Structures are given as structure tokens and as C-alpha cells.
Computed example of a mutant assay.
Amino acid sequence: MASDATAAARQQLIAKPQAKGSPRRLTHTVPPRPPAPPELEEHTDEHFQEHGPFSNYRNGFDYAVKMSGVNLPQRQRVHVLRYTFASHCMAHGGNLLMLQQVLGHTSLT
């Protein structure tokens, strides 16, 4: 027996026919997200005021490399970041074909 939530979800996934001759498409609505806790809103506002709405990941990565004491040539830092990402992805069960696309490679070799 389906719960009330399951029944409501099924009602949202009712197939509605499109214009005559076009294929039927499933339509559904996404429920609104609950509001963020006030502490998170405050922390986010403070972060944006200090750093702006978008942070540069390379600045953070360069800082982490500097603090680690690892001496990498300037042009190798992004390569090391990509290689580390790929290694962690595969170690945690990542899909090789998906990783190929994410990294922008045309082949697996």
C-alpha cells in the first residue's frame, strides 16, 4: 500500500499530452526548499562581504600548496589538482567514462 507521500508524488508525475502529434512528456513540479537556518544565512552574508559572491578556487589551492611546503612548478599546479581529483574519483568508485568527459579527454589513453 502506498503512503500519502508516494501517492502525492505519483499525482505530480501524471503524463500530460503535448500538442497533437508530439510525444507525451512527463511533467512534475519540484517542491520549494525549506529556508536556510539563520546562522547559515549570516555566515554566507559575512563570507560574501569579505570575499565577494564567487571565490577563486586557484587562490585557495595555491595557498594550500604553499602551506603544505610542497614545491611545485607554477605550470604544474593545475595538473596536480586534476590528477588528484581523478585519483580520488576512481578510488571512490567513480565511472571512468564519466571522468573522461569531466576532464575533457577525447580518449582513455
Rank of each mutant, 00 (worst) to 15 (best):
Q100A: 03
R58E: 13
S22P: 03
A86N: 08
G21K: 01
C89T: 10
A15G: 00
A9R: 04
M1I: 14
P53Q: 10
S87K: 12
C89I: 03
T44F: 09
G94L: 00
E41M: 09
G21C: 07
C89R: 04
R75V: 07
F85R: 00
A36D: 04
A19W: 06
L26D: 05
K16G: 02
F85S: 03
S3L: 08
K66R: 13
K20N: 06
Q76P: 02
T106H: 08
Q18C: 10
H92F: 02
L97Q: 11
Q49P: 04
L13N: 11
A2K: 13
L103D: 09
Q101P: 02
H28T: 12
T29E: 15
A9W: 06
D45Q: 14
T29W: 08
L97P: 06
A5Y: 03
Q18S: 12
P38Y: 02
A5Q: 06
Q18M: 08
A91N: 09
R24Y: 02
Q12S: 08
Q49M: 11
P17W: 01
T109W: 00
Q76S: 13
L13G: 07
H92Y: 05
A64C: 09
R10D: 12
Y63I: 06
S87E: 09
M67R: 15
F48R: 15
H79F: 04
H79K: 12
V78N: 15
Y63C: 07
D45K: 15
I14A: 01
Y63F: 05
H28K: 09
Q76M: 13
T44N: 10
S22I: 00
G104D: 03
N71T: 15
T6C: 06
E39M: 06
S55Y: 00
N71Q: 09
N59P: 03
R10T: 13
H105A: 13
L72V: 02
H43E: 11
G52M: 02
Q74K: 14
H92A: 04
E39L: 07
R58C: 08
L26W: 00
P37F: 06
L40Y: 01
E46K: 10
L81Q: 10
V30C: 12
H105T: 01
A9D: 05
K16I: 05
P17C: 03
V70P: 06
T84C: 08
T44A: 14
P23L: 06
S22G: 09
F48A: 08
T106D: 15
H51L: 11
N95D: 12
A2H: 11
Q101F: 03
V80N: 08
V70Y: 06
V65K: 00
T29V: 10
Q11T: 14
R75C: 05
S3K: 07
Q49I: 10
H47E: 10
Q74S: 13
A7C: 11
S68V: 06
T84W: 01
M98Y: 06
G94I: 01
R77I: 06
R75I: 02
L96G: 04
K66M: 08
P31N: 14
S3T: 15
D4R: 11
M1Q: 11
T27V: 08
A64T: 01
E50D: 03
T44I: 13
A64K: 04
V65C: 00
P37I: 03
